[in-house]
Every structure is written in structure tokens, then in C-alpha cells.
Deep mutational scan, measured.
Amino acid sequence: QTVHVKGVQYHFPNPEEAVKFALKVAKDLGGRVEFHGDEIHVE
């Protein structure tokens, strides 16, 4: 599972961890989380 944050990719073997990370980052940055297939983008 890959999380993209402002052009940087973070790889997580566990999808659940990836989602938790993405939600935390989005909250910290005041952004939103978008799901694109296997990828999660924080915009």
C-alpha cells in the first residue's frame, strides 16, 4: 500500500497502517485523503 503526501511516497505492508497514517497526516496538514485503487493520496 502506497501513501502519497506532497510528492513523497510512503510504503506500508499493511493497508490498515497506511490508512491510519494517511488520516493522521491529512488531519495534521488540514488536507483530505483520496483513495485511488491501491494508492492513497493526501491532498
Rank of each mutant, 00 (worst) to 15 (best):
V33E: 00
E34N: 09
G7L: 04
V8K: 12
G30E: 06
G7Q: 04
D38L: 11
D28W: 13
I40V: 04
H36L: 10
G7T: 04
P13Y: 10
T2S: 07
V5W: 08
V19H: 10
G31A: 11
H41C: 08
G31P: 00
Y10K: 03
G30Y: 05
H4R: 10
P13D: 14
K20P: 01
T2L: 07
H4V: 14
R32I: 11
H41K: 07
P13A: 13
A26L: 05
V33L: 11
V33S: 01
F35I: 10
P15K: 15
E43N: 11
Q9K: 14
G37L: 07
G7F: 04
I40S: 01
H11V: 09
R32M: 08
K24R: 09
R32H: 11
E34V: 15
V19A: 07
E17L: 10
G30D: 07
K24T: 09
V3R: 01
D28G: 07
H36Y: 13
K20C: 14
Q9E: 10
H4N: 10
Y10H: 06
F35T: 05
D38F: 10
V19Q: 08
V25W: 10
G30Q: 08
H4D: 05
K6M: 14
E43T: 15
V5P: 01
V42M: 02
H4F: 14
K27S: 10
K27H: 12
Q9I: 15
L29A: 05
E16W: 11
V25T: 09
E17C: 11
R32N: 07
H36N: 08
V19R: 11
H41M: 08
F21T: 03
E17R: 04
P15W: 15
F21W: 12
H36K: 11
V5G: 00
V25Q: 08
T2I: 12
H11S: 08
G31L: 13
D38G: 13
K27R: 11
E17Y: 05
Q9S: 11
F12E: 00
K27W: 08
A18G: 04
A18V: 00
E34D: 07
G30H: 09
E39D: 11
H4Q: 07
E39L: 07
V19S: 05
L23F: 13
Q9T: 14
Q1M: 15
G30T: 04
L23V: 11
E39T: 10
V3M: 01
G30P: 06
F21H: 05
L23E: 15
L23G: 06
F21E: 04
P13M: 12
G37N: 09
Y10L: 05
V3Q: 00
P15H: 15
E34A: 11
I40C: 06
F35M: 10
A26H: 02
L23N: 14
F12R: 00
V5C: 07
F35S: 03
P15M: 15
V5D: 01
A26I: 05
N14Y: 05
V3D: 01
V19F: 14
G31T: 05
G37K: 08
V8R: 11
K24N: 09
R32G: 04
Y10D: 01
E17P: 01
K20H: 07
H4S: 08
L29D: 03
E43K: 13
Y10G: 01
L23T: 12
E43C: 15
N14L: 06
G37R: 07
V25Y: 06
V8L: 10
E34P: 00
Y10V: 04
E43F: 14
D28L: 14
G31R: 03
D38K: 12
F21R: 02
A18Q: 01
K6H: 13
G31Q: 04
V25R: 05
Q9V: 15
V42K: 01
F21I: 03
E43P: 04
G30N: 10
G31E: 03
A18C: 04
T2Q: 04
P15R: 15
Q1L: 14
E16Q: 10
E16A: 11
N14F: 05
V8H: 09
V42I: 10
V42S: 01
P13L: 12
T2K: 07
E34I: 15
L29S: 09
Y10P: 01
E34G: 06
A18W: 02
N14V: 05
V5L: 07
V3E: 00
P15Q: 13
H4L: 13
D28R: 13
T2E: 03
E17F: 05
E39F: 07
A26T: 02
K27T: 09
K6Y: 13
G30C: 13
K27M: 12
H11F: 13
G37H: 09
E34W: 14
N14W: 05
E17D: 12
V25I: 13
